[in-house]
Design a protein around this nucleic acid. Structure first.
Length: 260
DNA sequence: ATGGCTGCAGGATGCAGA
C-alpha cells in the first residue's frame, strides 16, 4: 500500500490540484498538512467522492492536518500530548487494520520556528520534544507506525541546494537538527535516506525568486518509520510533478510503499 | 533583493509561511 504525506498549503485553494494528483497517484492513505480550514468548511465531499475516509483537525486561518484513507480509520485522536495549552492544529493520528495487524499513521506539522531565538523557536523545540516522547511511547509498545509530515527541519547540508542560505533560518539550526537526530536514534528509519544517500532530493521550493525553476529546494517533508514498519518498507518516492502544475503547493508529496 | 510569492480573514492590509 502507498502512504503519502503532502503539505498542500490550503485545502480549499488546492482542491483541483489535490484531486488531480489523487486520481493519478491513487495512494491508499494521505497525510495532509496546512489545510488552513476550520472543520465545518473542510471539503470532505470531494475526497469522499474519490473513495477516501476523512479525518480532520483544523483551525481558522493556518495550520490544520488531516488523514485520507481508503481503509476505515480507527482510534482517531487529534492532539500531541504534553501541553494542554497548545491550541495549534498540528497533529492527528489514526489506526488502520491490515491482514497482518494494526498500522498507526500520524500526520504532523511541526512548527516553523522563525525567527531564531523567538518564542516561536522555543515552541518549535518544545513541540519536537513532545514528538520525541510520543514516538518513544509507541516504540516501547513495539507498534507498527509511520509518522509523516512537514517537519520543518532540514536534517543535513545534503538536504538543501544552498546550505549557506539557511544558516540563519530556524529550519537549519543546530537545535532542531539535533532533535531530528535524537528522533532517528530512537530507532526510527528516515524512509527517504533508507533509499538514497544522494543530495538534490527536495520536497519544498519557495514560491519566490524562481526557486522551483532554479531547483533551489530543501528536504523538510519526511517519513519516520518504526522498526516494524521499516521491515515492511518496499519503496519511497518524491513526486515533483505537481510542483510544476498551475496553482501548486510549495511542497510536493512524499510516498512510502508498505508491504501488506 | 529589502523575503522578490501565496493563502487566509475580511473587506485593507497584516499575519504566517520557509
Amino acid at each position: 500500500m502507498d502512504i503519502a504525506t503532502w503539505n498542500i498549503n490550503g485545502v480549499k485553494a488546492r482542491l483541483e490540484t489535490a484531486a488531480r494528483w489523487l486520481q493519478a497517484a491513487r495512494p491508499d492513505i494521505v497525510l495532509l498538512q496546512e489545510t488552513k480550514s476550520e472543520d465545518p468548511a473542510f471539503p470532505r465531499d470531494v475526497f469522499e467522492d474519490l473513495g477516501y475516509n476523512v479525518a480532520i483537525h483544523g483551525q481558522k486561518g493556518f495550520n490544520g492536518v488531516a488523514i485520507l484513507s481508503k481503509l476505515p480509520l480507527e482510534d482517531v485522536s487529534f492532539r500531541l500530548p504534553g501541553d494542554e495549552a497548545d491550541d495549534h492544529a498540528r497533529f492527528i493520528e489514526a489506526v488502520v487494520s491490515l491482514p497482518w495487524g494494526a498500522l498507526r499513521v500520524a500526520s504532523l506539522y511541526l512548527p516553523n520556528g522563525n525567527p531564531v531565538g523567538s518564542d516561536k523557536f522555543a515552541y518549535k523545540l518544545a513541540w519536537t520534544e513532545r514528538l520525541h516522547a510520543w514516538a518513544e511511547l509507541r516504540l516501547r509498545a513495539e507498534e507498527t507506525f509511520v509518522m509523516g509530515g512537514d517537519y520543518n527541519i532540514i536534517p543535513e547540508p545534503r538536504d538543501t541546494r544552498f546550505p549557506s542560505n539557511w544558516t540563519s533560518d530556524a529550519l537549519f539550526q543546530p537545535e532542531p537538527r539535533a532533535a531530528w537526530r535524537r528522533l532517528v536514534h530512537l530507532g526510527l528509519t528516515d524512509a527517504l535516506r533508507a533509499s538514497t544517500p544522494n543530495p538534490g532530493v527536495y520536497t519544498f521550493w519557495d514560491y519566490q525568486a524562481g526557486a522551483w525553476q532554479k531547483d533551489n529546494g530543501i528536504r523538510i517533508d519526511h517519513f519516520l518509520l518504526s522498526p516494524q514498519a521499516a521491515d515492511r518498507l518496499e519503496g519511497v518516492a518524491i513526486d515533483r510533478e505537481p510542483r510544476g502544475w498551475d496553482k501548486p503547493s510549495d511542497h510536493v508529496p512524499v510516498i512510502v510503499r508498505i508491504a501488506t
